[in-house]
Design a protein around this nucleic acid. Structure first.
Length: 837
RNA sequence: GCGGACGUGGCGAAACAGGUAGACGCCGGAGACUUAAAAUCUCCUGCCCCUCGGGGCGUGCGGGUUCGAGUCCCGCCGUCCGCACCA
């Protein structure tokens, strides 16, 4: 009899749901485990990446339950965002209706896969019952001074009349409208993440269960630089400025300075431009074009000599010219630098172009000291030369000396600057959490009173015109000032959707109706023990969530500093790509094999097969999981997702693989349900069983699912070969328990068929007998001069002398030695004997 | 440019602490069962040579350490990822 997933899947899913098997209890006495996968954006249908992600989390959640943990494994929807608005514009559906429809579809698809989720805690960020609490938390941070408003430059699409993220600007044009993007100043809300730069950086050190790669990426993103901040005195006072602040990480090269440069956005540049049309034109030129990576890479270094000069801090007779340079960023450091062309490649290019002196002040040897620099800057280490009192010091010593001198003389101080910027959270969008602020002409920005939360999005909005519908809504954007009662304007910007995902894991742990979460209840579950998701969130989401948690900690709302104890970033699901002769992409379901070649089924054209790449709409290489699940059942799909590829690496989807997984599910069913009541002993199989119990448990805990799968195949092969015995029946029974977290439907079905009471989901994970984990016989390799010549099967723990003796007695070894007498014998007990002749 | 990861059969991979390289799966081959097919089962399957007992080569390339290197060290080559004028 075959295992029929069509009936079994539905049956067991219903049983689990009716019994509330996977509902997490807040007041269970058992040890708690919080397993979480990154919640999905409800884009329409689940894709293979979701299936892989949620299967991994599910294995862990089910395994932990069997190990006796009270497991929280929830699911929800990251439901705000632009695609819903794009759908509204294109398909004339309301973003809310579109989103809720997608959620319904995807929820059903997830349930079809039999994930052990606590659906009673499901949430959607677009629900006022969620975002209302988010507004309250935003106001908590606002009152604590962690939220502020400032003018900032944004990418503005003049056709769609909206702000674009950097990722939405392609070649200087808006991705939807194709219009040239402008840089525009808008007043926006910011969260003070830079206040937390130090602790976010230091905190990484304790996250041992995070991938090094992600920690490093965050470290680079936060970007700490230690250096000297100092003031140049200006040779003459200008528009109220009598000094120029600069920052450098190379104060040791201070005697190599040949110019100072300021950002085009620097206030001094603006002041100078008022009386200088040529400079004003230069500044305008710099403002053009969005700050895309590609544009920056190719951008030429350009400068404008202002004619003003600053005095070198260590020599009042020495003055340097001040330039405005397009490569100096106002947002980093002080927006001004001093240029050392000899030891900084960027300054070298600038200095060469504008004929500024290039001085050597660092050399790797005494004779190099007098050699001029040519071709490129020398940014390496060495000893300081041509630098008066610094001569002969190492770079590090010189840095310390100059900082000390600057602080003693009062013209500068050692300081740290960060690459990290404050988090701008204003979005000129409808489908997001309304920012709970009212702007009053008399009182300024005023927080919406708590009793008036949530500030609910209006349903009657119009997407026929570009721009933010909240802005032009006839009534919603008008409000009475909470402070003075006068007429005021409601804030029409909404929050960045990354705010929504910065605390959803807290809300999963505790969801009272009247506040965002209960402190004690949330702390009982948090931090998340294992978080699983794509590496594409390595920086933004994971950094924002860390920040938000620390902010709540700082204001006393939550005694948790790091939200995610363990992090795992899984690889993508990929598929081969197919291209027709005319270059268009062909989807996998249009491909057929004929005479050993892949052709387009409809036309017979031979296809060009490309290497597996991430499934994407543009390359048409996606495979929809739903028909696959309908054909093979949830377990085969789950098993395939766990097999072969290590979870952190990409997994290439292919038809043969799912066929193989299907075969295993059927084979397991046969092995487990046949011959359950045999008599007799099989000590070798019993040993194998216990070794597998240990191996599979260890592999699951290490998230090495591919190794767990391999161990189970070995056991299945051993069971298949073994003659009937009580140990064989016991092996089959244990095999079911071991596969239960991975392929739970067939495990339940077989468990019930064997007459067991209760669910296998509720069964205890088997215990491996330590005595059975060690072999009593071992295979010892016999080498001659390091080359394998024979193997011996000997009792474990055989003495060295005996091994040597047996090795020398071997016929093959005698032949290999060819009469030579070993001059050295290396014996590694239980492993090998190496005869050196 | 800066930072990082990874290179093992036809393919996905394994090898825990330097000790039998290729477990396990996929593809492929041979056979059994069957009127036949599907399904299932058994065996083979790194490359080359071979007198069929075996021999040689082999973990990107070149060196080194060691009785012994996929694993450690030095130098290359290649692929992928992140950041990108960060002073």
């Amino acid at each position: 009899m075959r295992f029929n997933p069509l009936t079994a899947d539905a049956h067991w899913q219903k049983v689990w749901e009716e019994r509330g098997t996977f509902r997490a209890s807040d007041d269970s006495p058992r040890r708690k485990a919080y397993i979480l996968e990154m919640f999905p954006y409800p884009s329409g249908r689940i894709h293979m990446g979701h299936v892989r992600n949620y299967t991994m989390g599910d294995v862990l959640a089910r395994y932990k339950r069997m190990k006796g943990f009270e497991v929280l494994h929830p699911m929800g929807w990251d439901a705000f965002g632009m695609p819903a608005e794009n759908a509204a514009m294109e398909k004339k559906v309301h973003p809310g209706a579109w989103t809720r429809q997608n959620i319904a579809t995807m929820r059903a698809q997830l349930k079809r896969l039999g994930f052990a989720l606590d659906w009673s805690r499901e949430l959607a960020t677009c629900d006022p019952a969620y975002y209302g609490h988010e507004q309250a938390l935003f106001l908590d941070l606002y009152e604590a001074g962690l939220v502020y408003r400032k003018d900032s430059e944004v990418n503005w699409d003049p056709v769609d009349m909206t702000v674009l993220a950097n990722e939405q600007v392609e070649g200087g044009r808006g991705w939807r409208s194709g219009a040239l993007v402008e840089r525009r100043k808008l007043s926006q809300w910011f969260l003070r993440i830079t206040d937390f730069a130090e602790e976010l950086l230091e905190g990484l050190g304790a996250l041992d269960d995070w991938p090094d790669k992600v920690r490093l990426m965050q470290e680079n993103w936060i970007g700490r630089s230690k250096g000297l901040r100092f003031r140049f005195r200006m040779a003459e006072t200008l528009a109220g400025h009598d000094s120029l602040d600069v920052f450098t990480t190379r104060p040791d090269t201070i005697f190599g300075a040949s110019f100072a440069a300021i950002s085009p956005d620097h206030p001094i540049a603006a002041a100078l431009a008022e009386g200088d049309p040529a400079l004003a034109a230069f500044l305008a030129e710099c403002k053009q074009g969005a700050a895309t990576a590609a544009a920056i890479e190719t951008a030429e270094k350009k400068g404008f000599g202002t004619g003003i000069r600053v005095v070198h801090p260590l020599d009042p007779e020495w003055t340097l010219p001040v330039w405005v340079a397009n490569f100096v960023l106002m947002e980093y450091g002080t927006g001004a630098i001093f240029g050392v062309p000899g030891h900084d490649q960027r300054d070298f290019e600038f200095g060469t172009k504008y004929g500024l002196p290039i001085r050597r002040v660092v050399a790797s040897s005494a004779e190099e000291a007098s050699r001029p620099l040519a071709g490129e800057a020398d940014s390496g280490g060495g000893i300081i030369v041509n630098s008066r009192f610094l001569d002969g010091l190492s770079v590090e010593e010189a840095k310390t000396q100059i900082v000390r001198r600057a602080e003693a003389d009062g013209w500068g101080e050692g300081t740290t600057v960060w690459r990290l910027r404050d988090w701008g959270v204003s979005r000129q969008r409808y489908w997001g959490t309304p920012i709970p602020i009212v702007h009053c002409e008399r009182c300024g920005p005023v927080a919406v009173p708590r009793e008036d939360l949530p500030v609910v999005l209006p349903e009657d909005v119009d997407f026929a015109k570009p721009g933010n519908p909240l802005d032009r809504h006839p009534s919603w954007n008008k409000a009475a000032c909470p402070a003075c009662g006068g007429a005021a304007r409601r804030e029409t910007d909404t929050l960045d959707t990354f705010v929504d995902s910065s605390w959803y894991f807290i809300r999963f742990a505790s969801q009272p109706a009247d506040r965002p979460f209960d402190k004690d209840a949330a702390e009982a579950w948090l931090p998340v023990d294992q978080y699983i998701g794509g590496v594409e969130h390595a920086i933004l989401h994971l950094l924002y969530a860390r920040f938000w948690t620390r902010a709540l900690h700082r204001i006393g709302r939550l005694d948790i500093e790091e939200p995610f104890q363990g992090l795992f970033t899984q690889g993508m699901v990929t598929h081969e790509t197919y291209r027709a002769p005319d270059g268009r992409w062909v989807a996998p379901d249009e491909v057929e094999e004929r005479e050993g070649r892949l052709v387009l089924a409809a036309t017979g054209e031979t296809l060009d097969v490309g290497r597996p790449q991430a499934m994407s709409k543009s390359k048409r290489n996606g495979v929809d999981p739903e028909p696959i699940v309908d054909q093979y059942g949830a377990d085969a799909v789950r098993w395939f997702m766990l097999s072969d590829s290590p979870p952190e690496r990409d997994l290439a989807w292919n038809e043969d693989g799912i066929e193989g997984a299907w075969r295993f599910v059927q084979r397991l069913w046969r092995l487990a349900t046949a011959g359950a009541t045999e008599q007799g002993e099989d000590r070798i199989l019993r040993r194998k069983t216990h070794q597998t119990i240990a191996a599979v448990g260890g592999s699951i805990e290490a998230l090495a699912f591919n190794k767990a799968v391999a161990s189970l195949y070995e056991l299945a092969n051993a069971v298949e070969k073994a003659p009937p015995s009580a140990d064989r029946a016991e092996a089959a029974r244990n095999m079911l328990l071991l596969v239960a977290p991975m392929i739970p439907h067939v495990a339940e079905e077989a468990w019930a068929a064997l007459g067991n009471e209760g669910l296998i989901a509720d069964a205890a994970w088997p215990e491996a007998d330590p005595a059975l984990l060690v072999e009593d016989q071992v295979t010892v390799a016999i080498q001659v001069n390091g080359k394998l010549r024979d193997t011996l099967i000997v009792p474990k723990g055989a003495p060295r002398e005996a091994l040597e003796e047996m090795a020398l007695a071997s016929e093959k070894i005698v032949r290999s030695l060819d009469g030579k007498v070993p001059r050295k014998v290396i014996v590694v007990p239980d492993r090998l004997v190496n005869l050196v002749a």
